[in-house]
Measured scan of single mutants.
Amino acid sequence: LAALHAEGPLAGLPVTRSDARVLIFNEWEERKKSEPWLRLDMSDKAIFRRYPHLR
């Protein structure tokens, strides 16, 4: 499970980098069924690119 911001401008976004990794992994797991070539990237760089508020 990932903790998400409940309200405000960040509502629905992950609270920590660990939470972001959970979301990225879950999405990758779903997408790899139809796109088996996808690589999993959970590096800090990938997290910041996707969720800049975690910098």
Rank of each mutant, 00 (worst) to 15 (best):
R49D: 14
H53C: 01
L13N: 03
L13K: 09
W28A: 01
A46E: 13
D19K: 02
L10D: 04
W37Q: 11
A3N: 13
K33R: 10
A2D: 08
Y51H: 04
K33E: 09
M42R: 06
R17A: 12
K32S: 14
E29A: 10
K32I: 14
A11E: 10
N26C: 02
G12I: 04
L13V: 13
A2W: 05
T16S: 14
D44Q: 04
Y51F: 15
A3H: 11
F48C: 08
L23A: 06
V15T: 05
H5I: 11
V15L: 07
A46S: 15
W28P: 00
S43D: 05
A6E: 14
R49C: 10
R49H: 13
E35F: 09
P9A: 12
S43R: 08
L10K: 06
N26G: 10
W28F: 12
F25K: 08
L38C: 08
K45F: 15
A6M: 14
P52G: 04
T16I: 01
F25E: 06
L23E: 02
R31T: 07
D44G: 03
I47T: 02
I24D: 01
L38Y: 07
N26I: 13
R55A: 13
R17K: 15
E7V: 15
L10N: 15
E7N: 11
R50Q: 09
V15N: 05
V22R: 09
R31P: 00
H53E: 01
L4V: 14
F48R: 06
A6W: 12
G8L: 04
W37C: 12
L54C: 00
A46H: 10
S43F: 02
V22S: 10
R55W: 10
S43Q: 02
W28M: 02
W28G: 01
T16C: 09
M42S: 04
R31M: 08
W28K: 01
S43Y: 01
S18C: 15
S34P: 02
V15H: 03
R21V: 07
H53R: 05
D41G: 02
E7P: 06
L40C: 08
P9F: 10
D41R: 04
S18Y: 13
H5A: 05
I47C: 00
K32E: 05
K32W: 08
M42A: 07
L54M: 07
A2K: 06
R49G: 13
G8I: 05
Y51A: 00
P9V: 10
D19N: 03
D19V: 04
A20P: 00
P52F: 02
L1I: 15
A2L: 10
P9K: 08
L54I: 03
R21N: 05
Y51P: 00
Y51L: 09
A20Q: 00
L54H: 00
D41C: 07
S43E: 03
K45S: 13
S18F: 12
A2Q: 07
A11H: 09
A20H: 00
M42E: 05
G8D: 05
K32R: 12
A11G: 07
L10S: 07
E35L: 12
A2H: 08
G12Y: 06
G12V: 05
R39G: 05
S43L: 03
R31L: 08
V22H: 10
R39T: 12
R55F: 14
M42K: 04
L38N: 07
L10H: 11
A20Y: 01
E29I: 13
S34L: 13
L1G: 08
D41S: 05
D41E: 04
L10F: 15
L54T: 01
S18I: 15
W37E: 14
E29M: 15
R50S: 05
K45T: 12
E29Q: 15
R31G: 08
S34F: 15
L10Y: 12
G12W: 05
I24F: 03
D19F: 05
W37A: 08
E29L: 14
N26V: 10
K45R: 15
R39S: 09
L1M: 13
G12L: 07
W28N: 01
P36L: 06
R17I: 13
D19A: 07
Y51R: 00
D19L: 03
D19T: 02
R31E: 04
L23R: 03
L23T: 07
K33F: 07
L40I: 08
L1F: 13
I47V: 15
L13E: 04
P9G: 04
D41I: 07
P36H: 08
L13A: 04
S34H: 12
N26Y: 13
R21A: 09
P9N: 10
P9S: 10
H5Y: 14
R21Q: 11
G12C: 09
I24H: 02
I47A: 01
G12A: 04
H53Q: 01
A46D: 05
D44C: 09
L38Q: 05
I24N: 00
A11W: 10
A6H: 09
E7S: 14
P52W: 02
V15G: 03
H5K: 11
L4W: 03
L10T: 05
V22Y: 13
V22K: 14
P52V: 03
A2S: 08
L4E: 07
V15E: 05
E7Y: 11
L23N: 02
E27L: 03
F25I: 06
R55V: 11
H53L: 01
